[in-house]
């Protein structure tokens, strides 16, 4: 268990940008891996900037997240990548223009961080479905209405 403050802030950031609570995020078993993956690609310094920018927000409203994180030239692409990572289980290669401005990020590329990343993608939970080929819901479960947790 990574117990340091940076990981805790990463979790809070992940809650804010995915809409899922920490229990669900930790429940994927991927949280520490995603933190390590993002930090490995963008580097410790940029991760620090992201975490600090998030921690400094007076409130975590969508407007402020948009203004200070998603709308930030350097942090925006990283945050969008984290959303995609949490929902789809894929780290997508950062845009060339990001690389030119803030790179080089030698570890960047489009890749799947672990075999469970796809299975644990939040998109499946969000749509009340299960990942094809994994987490089988059982014979005839299709007769039961999907449960969508986000209200």
């Amino acid at each position: 268990m990574v117990d340091d403050q940076r990981f805790q802030t990463f979790l809070e950031l992940s809650e804010a940008i995915t809409g899922f609570g920490r229990v669900r995020l930790l429940g994927t078993g991927q949280a520490e891996l995603y933190f390590a993956t993002a930090e490995r690609v963008v580097g410790h310094a940029i991760m620090d900037e992201l975490l600090t920018a998030f921690a400094d927000l007076p409130t975590r409203t969508p407007e402020l997240l948009r203004l200070h994180l998603f709308g930030n030239e350097m942090l925006g692409d990283v945050v969008r990548n984290l959303v995609k990572l949490w929902f789809g289980g894929v780290w997508y290669q950062l845009p060339a223009i990001w690389q030119q401005a803030y790179g080089p990020a030698a570890e960047d590329g489009t890749f799947i961080p672990s075999p469970d990343a796809y299975v644990e993608g939040l998109m499946w939970v969000a749509i009340g479905a299960h990942p094809a080929g994994a987490k089988a819901p059982g014979f005839a479960s299709w007769a039961v209405a999907p449960q969508i947790p986000l209200s």
Partner: peptide, 15 residues
């Protein structure tokens, strides 16, 4: 009908 229950338990237990 109990089958989907059991599968959902797996997900809850993991979480």
């Amino acid at each position: 009908e109990a089958v989907p229950f059991m599968f959902s338990f797996r997900n809850m237990v993991n979480e």
